[in-house]
């Protein structure tokens, strides 16, 4: 699964869909399997808290290169460093790019567009159908089109990350799957992954997993503290 994806994996999606939690889990799992250098870029210049750069030390310890997009800890000025370009062009890298939310979050990619070989890119859209703006099939498709228009990339896979944080049930994931399947049929975009937090979704069974689309991957909370 992780190794079957294209060398450059860009994680986009609606604001609050769970991109960062997915991206951080993804890159740590990828690192365990990949023989290449593995890097993650936090290109979120929208959000102020819960950014993957907060886990920089933890990721570096695991041998992952981390690029973040702020200058200095005191000013917290959003900035895209030139180093983020390297893994786009250096084929020695497996690269995960964690974007900011919504179509505005994709704008920063434009700066690298001329250096990116599109045949090397998977552009994923993370979806949580309990977020207010992606609650229906039409809304999901609208969001997909907005992301594509602004970024200049085509979405190559949906990720069903449907959740109500600690109140998530297996049923919720099946409901997300149902909506995404319909969106998938209408758009031709496959569901690549279904992700859920193992410690939270206690009623998950092998039978339900077999019903969910794509590779079903358990996540652990990196960004959310135990008391949240």
């Amino acid at each position: 699964m992780y190794l079957d994806d294209k060398r450059v994996r860009i994680i986009s999606g609606h604001y609050g869909s769970g991109k960062t939690e997915f991206a951080v889990n993804y890159v740590t799992n990828l690192k365990k399997l990949s023989k290449n250098k593995v890097a993650i870029s936090d290109m979120d210049i929208v959000n102020v808290y819960f950014r993957s750069r907060e886990k920089k030390d933890e990721l570096i310890k695991q041998g992952i290169e981390v690029f973040d997009s702020s200058i200095g800890s005191s000013a917290d000025l959003p900035a895209i460093p030139k180093e983020m370009l390297v893994p786009f062009v250096d084929k020695e890298y497996d690269y995960v790019v964690d974007l900011g939310g919504n179509e505005v979050g994709t704008i920063v990619l434009r700066r690298f567009r001329e250096h990116i070989d599109i045949s090397e890119v998977d552009f994923f859209m993370v979806v949580n159908v309990f977020r207010p703006d992606t609650q229906t099939v039409d809304a999901i498709i609208e969001q997909k089109e907005r992301l594509e228009t602004t970024s200049g990339f085509k979405i190559t896979g949906f990720i069903n990350n449907t959740n109500l944080v600690r109140e998530t049930s297996a049923e919720d994931l099946l409901y997300g799957d149902k909506l995404l399947k319909e969106a998938s049929e209408k758009t031709g975009v496959p569901i690549k992954y279904t992700s859920y937090v193992k410690e939270v979704v206690k009623d998950m069974t092998p039978e339900i997993i077999s019903k969910l689309s794509g590779d079903v991957i358990p996540l652990k909370y990196y960004m959310r503290e135990v008391w949240m």
Binding site: Y15, G16, F130, R131, N163, L164
Partner: peptide
């Protein structure tokens, strides 16, 4: 109404 997932500020 069913629950939705929202950020504190949006909510």
């Amino acid at each position: 109404m069913a629950k939705v997932l929202m950020k504190g500020n949006e909510a």
